[in-house]
Design a protein around this nucleic acid. Sequence first.
DNA 1: TAATTAAGTGTAAATATCACATTAATAATT
DNA 2: AATTATTAATGTGATATTTACACTTAATTA
Lengths: 229, 229
Amino acid sequence: MLNSYSSADKVLLAVDCIIFGFDNDGLKILLIQRDFEPEKGKWSLIGGFLKRDEVLDTAATRILNTYTGLNDIYMEQLHAYSEIDRDPVERTISVSYFALINIENHNAELIQNYHAEWFPINDAPNLIFDHNEMVQNAIKRLRYKTSVKPIGFELLPEKFTMRQLLELYEAILSKELDKRNFISKINSLGILNKLDEKDMQSSRKGSYLYTFNKEKYEEKLQNNFALNL
Amino acid sequence: MLNSYSSADKVLLAVDCIIFGFDNDGLKILLIQRDFEPEKGKWSLIGGFLKRDEVLDTAATRILNTYTGLNDIYMEQLHAYSEIDRDPVERTISVSYFALINIENHNAELIQNYHAEWFPINDAPNLIFDHNEMVQNAIKRLRYKTSVKPIGFELLPEKFTMRQLLELYEAILSKELDKRNFISKINSLGILNKLDEKDMQSSRKGSYLYTFNKEKYEEKLQNNFALNL
DNA sequence: TAATTAAGTGTAAATATCACATTAATAATT
DNA sequence: AATTATTAATGTGATATTTACACTTAATTA
């Protein structure tokens, strides 16, 4: 019988989160030092097991919240990893999720308590199991998403400068972008509010601050635009 | 304890396959009439449970082979579905896969024996569980993939005419394409071999047959091209 | 008040996309 | 043998998009 429920094998189902953040030093991911066996002391993605009464999306949200204190964060399911011995303890299938957060917003204390730490994506430690692969795939997806939705705004503080936005996109795509062309493309989308306020940290002249305009974005969304950078 | 293996709940893991095929009548999916409860007699995707010694990709391949007799088929993992009661019998998480096959190639006898049947994507019966949603998501992915890789060739016979290729893309994207612009775009990719042979079925003049040139495609692949149709 | 620093701005050339109509090859019909 | 009918094959000019590129401005500091 091909499809009998009773004879099928049950497995553990885990969720692992690739949490991206951005600050002045570039694009980062949040990793945790495992405090339990196996691989105790090594770096890993933040993760946990799916509960009986829980949907995968909820599990991902719960895990993110546990380690960062954050709610209402953009998360997206990526891929299910199922190599037989990917987890040496027991057959475990893991579904990866990625999240984008503004590094400034998270609960630093929580992160400390869990021995979690931010690492630049190009200078992260080796990870347990298949977590390196998960991260690489997440970066690919992030790049793709960036071209299709103005997803990067999740990574910036509420008010940001054009330079910050440019550098974020450069970090995500890991290539240099032409400043003028970038600005005119972004402006042509019409999804930014230019404030009267300036940020005086970065230069003598000061640079205007912007906010992301969700309403205008929702309007635009119908004609699913692409941002070719 | 957040991460203890022992306290975690195990679940059934299923694989469901969205199998796309193409013939003169357009784009189709392969569905099966369930011969077991629950929902016996209703239409469903082709699926099965993950086995203990099996990776998800292998399970998807096995399931495809069981029902179609085909091997070496392009398949891709799509998404994990985990709603609590999506399967009324028991908590089951299902990972969807999509496959592209040339309808002419499959084993028709096998399909008959399993009460499977091809349905036009726009005229398919209502499906059990969350399978309708799976199909809709698969169509979206197929559309996207089509613009990024020349994936459609999997759906055609080895030798095909430009008209067939055009109609395939029109079916996938569900919009009319300009014949001349389509041909020149496809040609500019340089991934087709024009044969000396003509297909005389479709017209008096006859139309040249083409094959897909895998070598040239692999060459091109480096500069990951996009096909904007 | 001169020097420094990053911000802000526009245009022309190249490329890609789009809309569009006629001729060519053959088989079937007379 | 000539005519008709059918689908295949082909190119161009107009428009839109993308790219490359350099100087001026505003404010602070020496």
